[in-house]
Design a binder for these strands. Structure first.
Lengths: 118, 118
DNA sequence: CTGTATCCCGGAGGATACTG
DNA sequence: CAGTATCCTCCGGGATACAG
């Protein structure tokens, strides 16, 4: 999960670099959400049913270390934290848009994706 | 790896759909390569040092089942197989382009990505 | 409310050897 | 050349409980 330079980085490697950043199971959704506006931790969690605190925290930490997300302590009294995108994180907008767009236009043609009607 | 409908699919879910299709470790490179031209199995493998036959086969099979890649037996005498993109696979071009583009423009700003100088 | 600490598990990915 | 068959490792993801 941490190697990208071990082969000639002429072509597909670039794609790998970007993919690595958003490959985490919940990062796509997190980024999509944060692209819209800042979120508090529990707001985020509420928006993505299924994710546990530990995992969400983990994904956020990773995004933070990648410089895509900022974590800010809003208040201490009632402990509150806000997550939002950095400038760098915001540059992912076109990427996220591409992904979303493709899903809208062609996602339904992918057998594996529409078979999930369980 | 196979669930996308278990939560409200209003926003980030779409992104997830697309991501799922290209999340495999070598799929990004495979798609990037095939976007250029058709490849024989061993040509593909040669282009991506580090991948084993088993894994490459697996990734290709998955892409095939997702309707993105076509496998064609070229010749039997000297056994030869060709892999290429389907029409659907070709629609991923803008997506791949986005990913590549982002890596070119911003990839170097990601700490985790440039730290890989080991 | 927002985390961390443990323990756990499946499966993606890999190494190796064999086959048509 | 292209692919399958085994076996194995590792870690991302999850469940649960606890803590500041």
């Amino acid at each position: 999960m941490k190697k990208h330079k071990d082969y000639n980085c002429n072509l597909g490697c670039m794609v790998e670099n970007t993919l690595e950043v958003i490959r985490g199971k919940w990062k796509g959704i997190v980024l999509t959400l944060l692209l819209d506006k800042g979120y508090r931790f529990n707001e985020l969690q509420r928006q993505m049913p299924g994710v546990t605190q530990r995992i969400l925290t983990k994904q956020l930490r990773e995004l933070e270390q990648e410089g895509l997300v900022i974590r800010e302590v809003i208040s201490h009294k009632p402990f509150a934290v806000s997550y939002s995108l950095t400038e760098l994180g915001r540059t992912l907008k076109p990427v996220i848009h591409c992904l979303k767009q493709w899903s809208l236009e062609h996602g339904h043609k992918v057998p594996a994706l529409e078979t999930v009607t369980d």
